[in-house]
Computed example of a mutant assay.
Amino acid sequence: MDFEGIYCFDTATVRFAIYPDGRDGARIIAQISEETLHDVFGTRNLGDRLLDTCKTHFVALSAAALRCHRANPKAPICLTIDDFSPRALPRSANDHDATSGAPVAA
């Protein structure tokens, strides 16, 4: 899936779209803070350059956003460092789909 996102200067976040049911299904907006991108992925990028970081790590971002969405479909998706911790990841191959098994930066 292609990355669709914008950098929001006023909130220092990147907002991006995921499609839990494929492109023909609902479009869900998730966000991740600049601070979380720095802590999880080790980037030094700032502002609009964080879009490059998100494109590079979109498999991990979309998997985390999808887990949050499935856990609580009506809640806003605001990814934090906890969404990328080992305890946030599925326990076995039987517990997740193909996209959620992507490597996640520590």
Rank of each mutant, 00 (worst) to 15 (best):
A106V: 07
A102S: 12
P90L: 14
I77N: 04
N72Q: 08
A65T: 02
S33D: 06
A93G: 15
D83R: 09
F3E: 02
P20L: 02
F58R: 10
I81Q: 02
S92W: 04
R44D: 10
D48H: 05
G101D: 01
L66D: 14
A64S: 14
D39N: 12
P73S: 02
V59H: 08
F16A: 03
R49D: 12
I28Y: 08
G42Y: 06
P76N: 01
D39V: 13
I77E: 03
F16T: 03
H38W: 15
Q31A: 08
T80C: 14
V59F: 03
L89D: 12
T99Q: 04
R23T: 00
R87W: 05
K55E: 12
P86V: 05
R67M: 08
F58T: 03
D10A: 08
R70V: 12
C68E: 10
G101P: 02
D24K: 04
R87N: 10
L46Y: 13
G5F: 14
I29W: 14
L37T: 13
F16P: 14
S62D: 13
R70C: 11
R91A: 12
T11H: 03
A26I: 13
A63G: 15
R70A: 05
L46E: 13
D39R: 13
E35W: 15
R70M: 10
I77C: 09
D95F: 15
T99V: 11
F9N: 05
D10P: 07
R44L: 13
V104P: 06
A64V: 15
A26N: 05
R91Y: 10
A65L: 03
I81R: 04
E34C: 08
K55G: 11
F84V: 04
A106E: 12
A63D: 06
A93N: 09
D95E: 15
H96M: 12
G22P: 00
P86C: 04
T99H: 00
I81K: 00
D24R: 01
L46D: 10
L51Y: 06
Y7N: 03
N94M: 15
